[in-house]
């Protein structure tokens, strides 16, 4: 797939009027989270969690700053930061994650004879798709509906972490932090000089040049 915003890095604006001090503090702290930081998940759960995150948001292998998705979820669970609601069929988020991770591993064993993280990517996707469809072969799920876990817990937390990371913002051409400067050009096809330039087919070099001067 072609790169839509070649050379765009939202972090190039860190020291511009688009970022205030408190935003620098918050994003600096997020960028500093080690990929392997964890307080909540156990040694046994951790490779499964990392492998699940790797399939829900498969990041480019050569990415300079991969989003520490699993570590961000771990931090959310360690702090028990909740969302404000929980379906009556679901346990609280910590128990849901523990049980869900155990169940996905058990499904991998039951279906393909290996733990989830040991499977090939296609096989991992097969296990995840089964959960998404609500199919359970293992009784490790207990009374927790697999489809509800997949949609409301797993996808919710993985995407909530990934799209809160500057690498994801750069990938989709989002302007990122914007206070106090905000934006000026509001109409169709108009970008401020501090916004991502989109590569038109055959004109990637133009976009790369514009993106190099984003600040």
């Amino acid at each position: 797939m072609r790169e839509r915003y070649p050379g765009y890095d939202v972090l190039a604006k860190r020291d511009t009027p688009s970022w205030n001090d408190q935003t620098r503090r918050a994003i600096d702290a997020r960028m500093a989270i080690p990929l392997a930081a964890r307080r909540f998940f156990s040694d046994d759960e951790w490779p499964t969690v990392q492998a699940i995150c790797g399939r829900i948001v498969p990041q480019p292998r050569d990415r300079a700053r991969p989003a520490p998705v699993a570590a961000m979820i771990d931090a959310k669970l360690a702090a028990d930061d909740r969302d404000g609601y929980r379906h009556a069929s679901m346990p609280p988020q910590r128990e849901a994650w523990r049980r869900g991770v155990r169940a996905i591993d058990a499904e991998a064993q039951a279906r393909l004879g290996a733990r989830f993280h040991a499977l090939a990517p296609d096989a991992q996707d097969e296990v995840l798709k089964a959960a998404q469809r609500g199919e359970a072969r293992s009784d490790a799920w207990g009374d927790m509906p697999p489809a509800e876990f997949f949609r409301a817990r797993l996808l919710h937390d993985v995407l909530g972490a990934y799209y809160a990371h500057p690498s994801a913002w750069s990938e989709i051409g989002f302007g990122g932090p914007a206070s106090p400067r905000g934006y000026v050009r509001m109409n169709f096809d108009r970008r401020d000089p501090w916004e991502a330039a989109e590569a038109l087919p055959g004109r990637e070099a133009d976009a790369r040049r514009d993106n190099a001067s984003v600040r």
Partner: peptide
């Protein structure tokens, strides 16, 4: 002084 340009933090 308290509000960050970031969805996660502002929850």
């Amino acid at each position: 002084e308290d509000f960050v340009s970031d969805e996660r933090e502002q929850s």
